[in-house]
Simulated scan of single mutants.
Amino acid sequence: MSEGMQLDLKKPLDKMTAKELRELVLKQVPQVTGASGLGKDELLVQIKEALGMGGEAGSKASPYKTKILSMKAKMRSLRAARTEVAGDGSRKQKELLRRQINKLKKRTRRLSRAS
Rank of each mutant, 00 (worst) to 15 (best):
S2C: 14
G4F: 11
M5P: 08
M5W: 12
Q6C: 13
Q6R: 15
Q6H: 13
L7D: 11
L7C: 11
D8Y: 10
D8I: 14
K10G: 11
L13I: 07
L13W: 08
D14N: 10
D14A: 11
D14W: 09
D14G: 10
K15V: 02
K15A: 05
K15H: 01
M16N: 06
T17C: 05
K19M: 11
E20Q: 12
E20R: 09
L21W: 09
L21M: 08
L24E: 12
V25S: 10
L26D: 14
Q28R: 14
Q31W: 13
V32N: 13
G34W: 12
A35D: 12
S36E: 15
G39K: 14
K40D: 08
D41Y: 12
D41I: 03
E42R: 15
E42Y: 10
E42M: 15
L44P: 08
V45L: 15
Q46N: 12
Q46T: 07
I47V: 15
E49L: 15
A50K: 13
G52S: 08
G54V: 06
Y64K: 06
T66H: 09
T66F: 07
K67D: 06
K67P: 00
K67G: 01
I68C: 08
I68H: 03
L69W: 05
L69D: 09
S70R: 09
M71D: 08
M71L: 13
M75V: 06
M75E: 07
S77L: 11
L78R: 02
R79I: 01
A80R: 13
A81S: 09
A81I: 01
R82C: 04
R82G: 04
E84G: 07
A86S: 07
A86D: 06
A86H: 05
G87D: 07
G87A: 08
R91H: 01
K92C: 03
K92T: 00
Q93V: 05
E95Y: 04
E95N: 04
R98A: 12
R99K: 09
Q100K: 12
N102W: 10
K103F: 03
K103T: 03
K103S: 04
K103M: 04
K105H: 04
K106T: 00
R109S: 08
R109P: 00
R110E: 02
L111C: 04
L111E: 01
S112D: 06
R113N: 00
R113H: 02
R113C: 00
S115M: 02
